[in-house]
């Protein structure tokens, strides 16, 4: 049996595609880099990852230009069919800009970029994205962003992850990650692909990546 194909999107300025691809491989999936100008996802795509970075150099607004590329129409169709889509950091920003997730990501309250290990609390254990982790369980995953303060109507989403302890970026209700109401499209500011390896300090990101092909 061949591994499930996971499309890893690449826009100009995407930075985390290699680590996202490695993380997908690590949980048994097969990553397939997918170019922003492609009009269709690769044949047999089971799920889509939109990795972090600075697509289009954050020109206009983070995620704004990438959300209007040809490949995003294909991602939208994939999601409409119930396929899973995970947006990480800039990927989350792109999903919000594309209207596939509600709300916006505003600049951090400190107005500066912050890179830090975070403790994330599972706020809703009813989606696939946290595997078997129960509500209140904690995942140690780093975040690194300048525009990561989610703001919107939580009633239009499921709040999957919250920052534990101090609110690091001024996000509404300490929200770190949300999914759509159906639960198949997930966006989060922290980087689960960088919490896959004990040598790097944590493996708590595996459940989130594994959910792509679960």
């Amino acid at each position: 049996m061949s591994a499930a194909h996971v499309a890893v999107l690449r826009f100009p300025g995407t930075l985390d595609h290699e680590s996202a691809a490695r993380a997908v491989q690590g949980v048994g999936g097969e990553p397939v880099y997918t170019h922003h100008e492609d009009v269709a996802l690769p044949d047999g795509t089971a799920a889509v990852v939109i990795p972090g970075g600075f697509s289009y150099g954050d020109h206009l607004r983070p995620g704004a230009l990438a959300s209007r590329t040809p490949i995003m129409a294909a991602v939208r169709q994939h999601a409409a069919r119930g396929g899973r889509v995970l947006g990480i950091c800039n990927g989350f920003q792109i999903l919000c800009e594309a209207g596939m997730l509600p709300g916006v990501l505003r600049p951090n309250a400190s107005l500066s970029f912050i890179c830090r290990q975070a403790e994330l609390e599972v706020a809703d254990d009813g989606t696939a994205w946290t595997g078997g982790r129960r509500e209140g369980e904690v995942l140690s995953i780093p975040f690194k962003h300048h525009d990561g303060a989610w703001f919107g109507d939580p009633g239009h989403a499921r709040v999957v992850l919250r920052y534990r302890g101090e609110n690091p970026n001024g996000s509404m209700d300490k929200i770190a990650g949300i999914s759509n109401l159906a639960g198949n499209v997930m966006g989060l500011m922290p980087h689960p692909e960088e919490a896959q390896d004990p040598l790097l300090g944590s493996v708590d990101g595996r459940v989130i990546i594994a959910a792509l092909i679960a």
Partner: peptide, 14 residues
């Protein structure tokens, strides 16, 4: 200072 820098991109920072 260093929290303003991405220390992790590439997932090789030990």
């Amino acid at each position: 200072v260093f929290e303003q820098y991405d220390q992790l991109v590439g997932a090789n920072t030990m």
